[in-house]
Nucleic acid binder design. Structure first.
Length: 271
DNA sequence: ATGCCGCTATCGTAGCGA
């Protein structure tokens, strides 16, 4: 329940697709305080920079870095352990649309000595939609950056809504998703290629069988029909420090919930 | 087994993205 930063060696870093920060700012700030989280990477803020509610975060001791260009996408990092060297895209991040504009889907910031990337991977829509090819292109470009981040030796975390269910067990019914995005071999291989640069997924081993997302429709949440698509990847320097991880399913309940649950990773201080 | 979204454009409801 403490809102005071821990004095002994632990840092909590979380990722959460909030599905509009303006619709949910009270829920998000309340959750940060109750869970003693130091850094939160958010996706789908669904607002422009000027519309982002900075004050409620600053009032409880967090600095904000956000990029949002329209009512779509939008990613942020909020931190109470500092925010430095903010980037609002990764190197060679592909664009979308007739004008091929870079979308607000990636934000990097250094918080408490960790390079944190908040990532909102394109959904893909359907496998015959141009958005699916864009998704794969986006992931391939991210892989190139991931390799450079590994080579740098900087403690790095890739946090976000990946819109990929890595294993069949990460969807409530594999047959239901046959022929759909999120479960195809090219998507899973694109994620595996990023991991192959040297990143490790940090949450699965602590949250076996759990989901991070449940569609609002069809009573998917009470029926426990979800997906694991929100993931946290760590470079070796981060992976060595992980002491636990948690998916806060409780936060998916009730009026005004996002369709995604927050995912928390706990790190010990560097050795 | 905690029970059907949020945005914009426009002012009740359609279109879009997820």
């Amino acid at each position: 329940m403490s809102v005071v930063a821990d004095t002994v060696g632990v840092m909590r870093i979380a990722t959460w697709n909030v599905n509009s920060i303006r619709a949910r700012v009270d829920r998000v700030t309340s959750w940060l305080e109750r869970n003693d989280v130091d850094v939160l990477a958010m996706q789908e803020t669904k607002c422009k920079d000027a519309q982002f509610p900075h004050l409620p975060f600053e009032a409880i001791g967090y600095e904000v870095a956000h990029t949002g260009l329209s009512q779509w996408n939008g990613v942020a990092v909020v931190s109470r352990v500092g925010i430095e060297d903010v980037e609002t895209a990764f190197e060679a991040q592909p664009g979308w649309g007739e004008q091929l504009a870079t979308e607000a889907r990636a934000l990097g910031a250094t918080c408490g000595g960790v390079r944190v990337w908040s990532l909102y991977v394109p959904n893909g829509r359907t496998i015959v939609d141009p958005h699916y090819a864009y998704k794969l292109e986006w992931l391939a470009a991210l892989r190139a950056s991931a390799a450079s981040w590994i080579a740098s030796g900087t403690p790095t975390m890739l946090l976000g809504d990946w819109n990929i269910a890595p294993l069949d067990e990460d969807v409530w019914d594999r047959e239901f998703f046959e022929g759909s995005t999120h479960v195809t071999a090219p998507e899973r291989e694109a994620l595996a290629a990023i991991e192959a640069t040297g990143f490790t997924e940090l949450t699965r081993s602590y949250t076996p069988g759990e989901y991070t997302y449940w569609d609002y429709t069809q009573l998917r949440f009470p029926k426990r029909q979800g997906m694991r698509i929100d993931l946290a990847l760590g470079s070796p320097e981060v992976t060595a420090r992980v002491t636990g991880a948690r998916i806060d399913r409780e936060e998916r309940k009730g009026k005004g919930a996002s369709d995604h649950a927050p995912v928390v990773v706990e790190l010990a201080d560097p050795a």
